[in-house]
Amino acid sequence: MKVGVITFPGTLDDRDALRAASAAGTTAISLWHNDADLKGVDAVILPGGFSYGDYLRCGAISRFAPVMEKVIDAAHGGMPLLGICNGFQVLCEAHLLPGALTRNKDLHFLCRDQKLVIENNATAWTSDYAKGQEIVIPLKNGEGSFQCDDKTLAALEEEGRIVARYVGENPNGSRNLIAGITNERGNIVGLMPHPEHAIETLTGPSADGLAFFTSVLKAMVK
């Protein structure tokens, strides 16, 4: 089972994402923003960073990268797609997920170990968690405040599409403490905190993030 990780100019977390996918037992494949095809991967991760320097809006230019056309088509066809941090911003800009990520409420770049609760464990990326499970993984971003209109928010809540919520104080002003959401089908997940930085205790605050990557392996085998 092959998981592709896309590197855009300015991406930072592609190596950790590749490593996490390998650690979970998948074959990790590096993809380039200018690639015209997905090299036969079964799932794709859009990693964190500052693609295209965050110019215009975070993720706004990456959305139109050549590789994204194939990614969007494949995701509409049900391919598992995970956007982490900047990747989440790209997914919102590409309208694969609703809403947008805006500047943190206090304008600070946050970098901390963050407690989350997994609320939807029925997605392609969260099946290895228990519903209601609390995890601690790094949160590091300047524009992580999830915003959407009231109607969208109500729909996300009613349809159980909030994948993860911040526990405790709201770190960035996200509506309803949203840390991650999914699409109706559950194959596309956007998450602000970084599971790929928490796959082992040597370098991360926990190994809590690994289950995102083992979950997708199961989803692909099904």
Binding site: R103, N104, K105, D106, L107, Q147
Partner: peptide, 13 residues
């Protein structure tokens, strides 16, 4: 411009 209902922390600052 950001829509009126969207928080604008830069403008606030």
């Amino acid at each position: 411009m950001l829509k009126p209902e969207i928080l604008d922390p830069q403008g606030v600052a």
